[in-house]
């Protein structure tokens, strides 16, 4: 007999699959009959076919590569300074107090408002998307690193001093492990908003990238292909989030 936890998980999975099946069937029916939304809701089968077409086409990979590159670049350029700045904010009370209101205000500002400025600064090419992704990633990472730094119990540092740890050992054996979880959590949030920033930028103004591709299909009234791109972006974002979650679980496992 299975343990209660296992059977509950199996039930949840079953419900999830059934829900999806019902929704897809409903979608297919609505799409075929064009009862609601008319042309704007192509049937699921047409979208699936469009996904297959995209995956088989060479130009799709050019768009994919550009978007992945922009996300990776934006994430690196935003998250690394974010970690450094956040740690400094957490370690130095004065800096933290001085920067807190600005960081909090900017963190909640939709980053898309910076797009015109960014485009003026670095042009309308992929650079502007990288910049938007970086600006987006910076804040959640900085905030998580700062609060993680502030949350380190002072007694850990005193234990380190009592055992005569050198500076490098203090970082490696006390600070890094104590900060692993909050930083990974921040990185996960940062990657999410970085993807949002890059795609928003591509939707607004670009000549290449998945956001541009979606926009292009929209302009051509090719809704099945539009939905296909959306589905692919959704799948990729889920994959990225899943990878970050696994990292977070590893950091959290032992607390």
């Amino acid at each position: 007999m299975a343990a209660p936890g296992v059977s509950a998980r199996r039930d949840a999975a079953l419900i999830r699959v059934l829900t999806l099946a019902v929704l897809v069937a409903l979608w297919e029916a609505l799409g075929q009959t064009r009862l609601v939304f008319g042309e704007a809701l192509p049937p699921a089968s047409a979208v699936a076919a469009a996904v297959a077409r995209e995956i088989a086409s060479l130009s799709f990979y050019r768009h994919l590569a550009v978007t992945l590159g922009e996300v990776a670049g934006g994430f690196l350029l935003g998250a690394l300074p974010g970690v450094a700045f956040g740690l400094a904010m957490g370690a130095r009370r004065v800096l933290g107090a001085a920067a807190d209101p600005y960081v909090a205000a900017l963190a909640t500002t939709p980053k898309i408002v910076f797009l015109p400025i960014v485009m003026l600064a670095v042009g309308i090419g992929p650079g502007s998307k990288v910049a938007l992704g970086a600006i987006s990633a910076f804040f959640p990472v900085a905030i998580a690193a700062a609060s993680g730094m502030r949350a380190i119990p002072p007694v850990f540092v005193r234990v380190g001093r009592a055992f005569n740890l050198r500076g490098g050992q203090m970082v490696r054996m006390i600070y890094l492990p104590a900060l692993a979880l909050p930083i990974v959590t921040g990185l996960r949030l940062g990657l999410g908003v970085c993807i949002v920033g890059v795609l928003l930028g591509e939707l607004k103004l670009a000549s290449v990238g998945l956001g541009f591709l979606a926009r292009d299909y929209y302009d051509q009234y090719d809704f099945a292909s539009l939905y296909a791109v959306v589905a692919i972006v959704f799948a990729l974002a889920s994959l990225a989030n899943g990878a970050m979650s696994r990292l977070a679980r590893r950091a959290e496992a032992h607390r």
């Binding site: 007694v155 005193r158 009592a162 492990p177 104590a178 607390r255």
Partner: peptide, 15 residues
């Protein structure tokens, strides 16, 4: 001199 602290001081990330 070996110190034992009043506060909870074991490292949660270590067995």
């Amino acid at each position: 001199i070996g110190m034992v602290f009043q506060e909870e001081s074991t490292f949660p990330w270590r067995t």
